[in-house]
Write a protein that binds this DNA or RNA. Structure first.
Lengths: 352, 352
DNA sequence: ATGATCTCTTGGATCGGTTCAAATCTACGC
DNA sequence: GCGTAGATTTGAACCGATCCAAGAGATCAT
């Protein structure tokens, strides 16, 4: 059903009695060929079942693929299932759409396959979603000698072109919001600090975290709360992983003799799971507990109650990332984009 | 930062003092070259900043891209935002993942760009999401002379390789479920029947629909209801488009002197919007009205109440589509995959 | 007629690899 | 010292187009 004996441009040219060059022009620069000739070549091509210039051939010559790859160390379905990834992909694709650039999904949970996929992806550059295994991903991508930009990179490395957010600043905003409402007893529901960890963390574990994203957010919370007279030692930080670990953590937090009146969650996902647990326990948000998320995913707007959260400027991140790659002008180092806070119904004054 | 003077294989070969052929073998068939030579060439390559064999060059020779394209006549963000598309994409990507195949997103709302994108996509074949503009899409894809499979194609055309579902059968299941619960007064909340239409349809308009998907579902509903003694004329069919048109339609349905006790919705999306309207009006589901959706998207499980719906076997559709393309064995004609019904809380016995 | 312009066409070089038949090298047996 | 099988290398052909300098024709003014 597909290409059969693969008719090529040269065949069409011969059959039509013109040179290869002319035949090529008929397809890629029709205006320079005389109408009569063009029609004839086109007709011959159609008759022979020629499927237009092979992309491969053209490609070899042009060098540009006109597509960018988006890579992650995750199964490919991640792009369509994870809320953050999805939101980001939607923004990236909107930018690509506008500039007529194609997108290729490059991904694999399996290291070996990932190597191969990155090596052989037909793209002009990469956008790396570094939520997990970021360093490895960057290293692999480097070898392709193509422009790339890392997003959500969890490690500090000045030599990696990154577009991101200022996590300390974002966390600060969340903490300030709650502190200004009058809260003084807090707990932090964190994301991953180190490979596979979970549970209550010590100050040292927080500062020595593998993933700087989590570390910076914790530091941002602590620092700002301190300004309001809340001692960091009084603000426990729980590391979480899957849903079960999140529930365990919230349970631990509220098992305390004097539970917090406000929760600082390092991601909307964590916050939403926590809200579910709270609802099950009959604790009202925000009357009994206020909670602030982080990321600004769509789901946060639709939850009951809607979640106050720090929203990431995904559209702007996407725009800058795609532009950087298309123009082969990747930032020399990390570039930060300002965050905003969306105040919704999950936060309020603490109980008197 | 990217490739500079672009070192090529020939350069490395010259520098290392071996032939181009040997250099090529070092990278693509390392086992045939002597260790000593291999090491030396590899070292030279690294020193010169050679980024491995260019994919383009290899490609030209090999002919296989090892990627399939998924195309739709929609803005690219559609793949990440539309519930049905997302669910399907997740399944497709799972299959691709398993076989190490890459995925490229090919899409554009703009006809001209779409043509170009399809023409130049670097893929071995296409999966077409034909929810809208299906015929045009098929036509364009044909020209590439690559294997392709159409999904959710809304038109009857035996010459198009399609993998789909039996819409009549699915609609039948929905209708039977409600009829067996005892319902006798129905209304159909339909999807698009013809380009841009909306509102109450006549029998003739239903049967003469442009989109066979909607037509078949309507026919399935009517046919089965008739078996239960419900005359087709008593079951109004409303065509809908955007959210506003859906709300208008439900409003019209419930403005009737004897409103139906059950709604047959042709898609989960339509059903969910309708449920929202019903909730606003204080009508309880299923106590006052039962409703059955179609598609089986994730959101249908999470709605309040969870929606009874006809679920499409997306995983199986995805598997067959990807396999067909990878093996260049596209079905000669339409192939149907059986549907199942997920009975949830949105349906119950009618009020006595 | 002759030369100057213009408009098309042509053919060969090139993109960056892979492939494979033939050439070269080694080691080993007699 | 000679022949031979086996292991490596080589070099030219090829994949399917695009690009461009140069050639061929047609048109028009002198």
């Amino acid at each position: 059903m597909a290409t059969k004996a693969t008719v090529k441009l040269a065949d069409v040219a011969r059959e039509a009695g013109v040179s290869k060059g002319t035949a090529s022009n008929v397809f890629s620069r029709p205006e320079v060929v005389r109408d009569e000739v063009r029609e004839h070549v086109l007709a011959t091509a159609k008759a022979m079942g020629y499927g237009g210039p092979s992309v491969q051939g053209r490609l070899l010559r042009a060098g540009k693929v006109n597509a960018i790859g988006v890579a992650a160390v995750e199964p490919m379905a991640y792009f369509f299932e994870d809320p953050w990834a999805r939101a980001l992909m939607a923004e990236i694709s909107a930018v690509c759409d506008a500039s007529g650039t194609g997108m290729a999904l490059v991904s694999a949970k399996n290291q070996q396959k990932l190597v191969w996929n990155i090596q052989s992806a037909l793209v002009d550059g990469f956008i790396l979603l570094c939520v997990e295994g970021g360093e490895k991903l960057v290293e692999l991508t480097r070898e392709r000698h193509l422009p790339f930009v890392a997003l959500a990179l969890g490690v500090d490395d000045k030599s990696i072109p990154t577009i991101g957010i200022d996590n300390i600043e974002g966390a600060s905003m969340a903490a300030r919001h709650l502190a200004e409402l009058g809260h003084r007893r807090f707990a932090v529901l964190g994301t991953e600090f180190s490979e596979g960890g979970a549970g209550l963390l010590t100050d040292g574990q927080v500062r020595g975290a593998t993933f700087s994203t989590s570390r910076d957010r914790a530091i941002g919370y602590w620092r700002t709360l301190a300004e309001f007279g809340v001692a960091p030692e009084s603000v426990p930080v729980y590391e979480t992983q899957d849903v079960a670990s999140i529930r365990t953590a919230v349970a631990a937090i509220f098992a305390a003799p004097e539970p917090p009146t406000a929760i600082l969650a390092m991601s909307d996902r964590v916050a939403l799971v926590a809200m579910e647990w709270l609802a099950e326990q009959g604790l009202r948000v925000p009357e009994d507990v206020s909670i602030v998320g982080f990321d600004g995913v769509k789901e946060a707007e639709l939850s009951e109650p809607p979640l106050t959260t720090i929203v990431q400027p995904l559209a702007e991140i996407a725009r800058q990332a795609v532009q950087a790659i298309l123009q082969d002008a990747v930032p020399a180092q990390r570039r930060s984009i300002p965050l905003t806070i969306a105040v919704r119904a999950s936060t309020g004054k603490p109980k008197a």
